[in-house]
Design a binder for these strands. Sequence first.
DNA 1: GTGAAAGCGCTAACAG
DNA 2: CTGTTAGCGCTTTCAC
Lengths: 367, 367
Amino acid sequence: MARSMHVRRPATLASLAAELGVSRTTVSNAYNRPDQLSPELRRRVLETARRLGYPGPDPVARSLRTRKAGAVGLLLTENLSYAFRDPAAIGFLEGLALACEDAGTGLLLVPANPEREDVAAVHRAGVDGFVVYSVPDDDPHLAAVLERPVPTVVCDQPDLGNVDRVGIDDQAAMHSLAQHLISLGHRRVGVVCMRLARDRNDDFVVPERQQAAHFHVQRARLAGLAQAFASVGVDWETVPVAERFDHTMASGASAAAQVMERDPQITALICTSDILALGALGELRRRGLRVPEDITVTGFDGIREAEQAGLTTVRQPVLEKGRAAGKLLLDSAERTRPRAVTLSTELVLGSTAASPRGTAEERWFGP
Amino acid sequence: MARSMHVRRPATLASLAAELGVSRTTVSNAYNRPDQLSPELRRRVLETARRLGYPGPDPVARSLRTRKAGAVGLLLTENLSYAFRDPAAIGFLEGLALACEDAGTGLLLVPANPEREDVAAVHRAGVDGFVVYSVPDDDPHLAAVLERPVPTVVCDQPDLGNVDRVGIDDQAAMHSLAQHLISLGHRRVGVVCMRLARDRNDDFVVPERQQAAHFHVQRARLAGLAQAFASVGVDWETVPVAERFDHTMASGASAAAQVMERDPQITALICTSDILALGALGELRRRGLRVPEDITVTGFDGIREAEQAGLTTVRQPVLEKGRAAGKLLLDSAERTRPRAVTLSTELVLGSTAASPRGTAEERWFGP
DNA sequence: GTGAAAGCGCTAACAG
DNA sequence: CTGTTAGCGCTTTCAC
């Protein structure tokens, strides 16, 4: 039984047909259209197949012939280690996988490491369509996907004009969070955000870079903040915005430290993701600050860990995003023009935001 | 630009060749072997391709010809919702994905819902090999995979004799955990385990069902327990073992309740997974029991949440398991006989296990 | 109910 | 460096 040993495919549909003295059609029918065949003949075919070790029609050959692969590709240009550690990404993946499962479709994770600009994997993927999740808008992998003649839906991506899209209104959501902070009395704030482009910049971000960010989600969230605070007279140029390439709690912590160093007087630290916020929270507490008494901290995403920590944040339906993306793609037969699904978000009022108290100096250096 | 609109594939390699007045080989070479071509001609080919909207060689046709799909399939017969909520499963997935990415190979999640016995998806999967993760040994999907003439590696699965295998020594690991409890003085214990077969049984388990369990991992862990406790004179028949189909904290909680109901005098509740243990922990505390003063609780897996909770458990290298499975599969060119990788585990002494104190009656009903 | 014909779109010798 | 030849293994009208 060396079955598992990379055996040279022994029998083909043709050889089976020959052995049986029937046509290839008949054998094919035995597998694909049982009703086109006498049960008796079918039994004989299947039995002979087993005897000859014929494993059934080759899926690739079938795909070539039928012009469908039975799978959708997922492009995820984040280091996998971060993706699989990010509850939001996992939620998206789960939703997408559920949609695929419902449709009996496979889900192909296309290897697309941001470091290697190897687009070949995109070309090699035998899929009926692509879902693209949160990649920079200038990512070559994305470009490669768009060149493939298959339907595509992008998620957390700017409007590409001719492609289906799923997302939330990041700018509006962040704007409303900002409004909340403003109404609490915060005027002097700091920001921690995720990577804005493909190049690593673990440092402060000038407004130009903010506006030119290649990650739509981050750009929109920053824009929402800038807009809200500008509207109450805050000069956004003066607001320290620290960027971090790696999406980890450690990044959140170091960015928080950097921002506090730059402006100890801020009364709120706004983070563009919960992961970063949780890291920041830890760092601030480690430094002896109380949240929210001494400083307000907010996140974005609404992951479970954030909820447990009582983080003030924006909750977005990540699983639904994945599911919607899958549905959109798998429906794409009967569509005509690009569709867009915008899911709603919810401001979560946790226990990490409050009105500023005392002078900032006091908070930072002690009373 | 109706590029995204499911266009009928306009051009093929052949038509492009015709247009250019060169042979198909030349066009093929332009894509696959740039060095077999004058740069000038190559440029012309690629440019004409763009002009004609030729998206490059069709991946499926290429796969058929080259006999390789550039992807491995992952069979995961758990409800996806549980899989994606189980840190251990996610860790495995991450490790496998990393191995695939290293090799530039895609990872195809094969839709295999335990409820639908639809094996077709396995047949339809265009992959160069399969990884099978923790499915019941009588799963029809598994059988279907084994019939495919591609290399396969199973993980957390009994030895199939002719297939590569990755796993840990579940029995030994659980045995050592049991020894630890025994050395602490525990003799009267209860057990909470995951599903043992494909049928739902949210109830106690008789020893026969334990020994006949179709999930190798669960069977081995229970065997390790039974063996350890039997060796110090405990009659395993009398030990309450509660099974739960769904792998959730809620299941752990309800099973814990059920076991306590059955035998309030147990001094330790042993769970075969951390998820279950965390649920049990919550339930016991909710009932006013202190852990470990009133009762000992243990888990298995070593997930992060368990660590945070200070759970006494067994840590297993889930990420490494995934990576090892991927490596094994992607190496399988140069192999001859089935290989097995057994990774090591580590007993984690947390704060949820201690020597039993007072009488059990007191603990359960109050002093 | 069964078969013959006609590719799906591509790559890989090999010869020129 | 380029072209010719030969399929990879299968499905699908369309006759019989």
